[in-house]
Simulated scan of single mutants.
Amino acid sequence: MTYFLSDLSIYPIKSIKGIPLKSSQVSAEGLWGDRRYMIIKPNGEFITGREYPTLTLIKSEWIKRGIWKLSHPSHPNFIEINSDDLSTEHQDVLIWDDTLRAQKAKENINTWFSDVLNESVCLVHFSEQSKRFTSRRPESPVAFADGYPFLLTTRASLEELNTTCTQAIAMTQFRPNLVIQGNSAFEEDSWKRIRIGDVEFENVKPCIRCIFTTLDPETAERLPKGEPLKTLGKFRLLDNKGITFGINMIALNSGEIHVNDKVEVLEYKTPETYTDRRKK
């Protein structure tokens, strides 16, 4: 059976709409440009689409390296962000249990985001002064992603979910970086190491899913009945940990990957055990 990379996406600012790519550079910290920016409250606490769903409607467009054009349907103007033209000021920011230094954006950019969210916020950049590492692989760096630099899902697993889910679920609700096609449903649970193109990745842990997945990516409204979490909870509940979909990955080397690259499973592991309580 042939596996291949069907989709490749980045999210330049944590929680905003993703950008589909044809190819990307891979480093230990993630895909180039992925989650290198984040929005914070004045006290440094990070915010996401979980509490501010309208963030997911912010659309980004790559102008050229380091420059992004942002727009929001409720805001009359767009804004450009240039990583070479930010404030020289840094401040401590808190993302989950990690405190790190991050570079602040200039006031006109902060004003734009504050207008979109109707409260005072600040955009920060993961700069050379910013240091953060994953919990299970403390030698592996990560930028502003929740916990690990790569999230992988598969088409077959989404199709299996949609066989019993009461709502049609789109892959974009899970916000993956890498989507694989050609495997059987949830076969990715058993992958320990894979190669995409010339880059090797390691499966660190299943991805625990939260209320963020219940947002419609086109409207930022919650789906009825808490889907897809309600259905996933019937067959993807990992005891004492939570509901899972997809796997958190780290890269074992750098390189470039492309959509349609062959995916090779280099090493397998014993998958987690789930009980399927669905009525089919």
Rank of each mutant, 00 (worst) to 15 (best):
T134L: 07
R132P: 07
R175A: 01
F4A: 00
A145W: 11
E188R: 08
I194R: 00
N253D: 13
R277F: 13
A251D: 10
E61Q: 14
L94C: 03
E160Y: 12
R278G: 03
N162Y: 05
M249A: 05
F144P: 00
D84M: 12
T48H: 06
I169A: 04
E267Q: 14
L8C: 01
K41C: 10
S254G: 13
S23G: 02
Q91I: 10
H90D: 12
A168T: 14
R132F: 12
G242E: 09
I180T: 03
M38E: 03
K104A: 10
P12L: 04
E45C: 04
W112R: 02
R209P: 02
Q167T: 02
L237H: 13
K269V: 00
T166I: 04
E61V: 06
T163E: 15
E45W: 07
G18Y: 03
P73E: 11
T164F: 14
I10H: 06
R278W: 08
F186C: 02
H125F: 15
V179S: 13
E51Y: 11
A168Y: 13
I58H: 04
F133A: 01
V124S: 05
L223K: 00
P228W: 05
E264S: 08
R132G: 06
L70W: 10
H125C: 10
S140F: 06
S157I: 06
A185F: 13
Q129K: 15
D189L: 08
N253E: 12
F150Y: 15
I208K: 04
E264L: 07
A220P: 00
P149W: 09
N110W: 08
Y37H: 13
Y37P: 02
R222L: 09
G242N: 05
D261Q: 11
V265H: 08
K59W: 01
T164D: 13
I196Y: 07
V93I: 15
T214Q: 06
C207D: 08
L215R: 00
S157G: 10
N253H: 10
I211N: 11
G44L: 05
L152P: 05
R65V: 01
Q91C: 13
K64I: 01
I19M: 10
I243M: 05
D97P: 00
T219F: 07
Q181D: 15
G233K: 03
F212A: 04
I169Q: 04
G233S: 02
L21V: 00
L8R: 01
R36E: 12
I58M: 10
F174M: 09
V142D: 03
M171W: 05
P149R: 08
P76K: 13
T270P: 01
A168N: 14
F126M: 05
G66V: 08
N77F: 08
G49P: 01
L31S: 04
G33Q: 05
F212Q: 03
R278F: 06
H90P: 01
E267L: 12
N183R: 08
K262R: 11
L232S: 09
K230Y: 09
R209A: 03
A168D: 14
N82I: 04
E128H: 12
P206E: 15
E200M: 13
N253P: 06
P12Q: 06
F245Q: 06
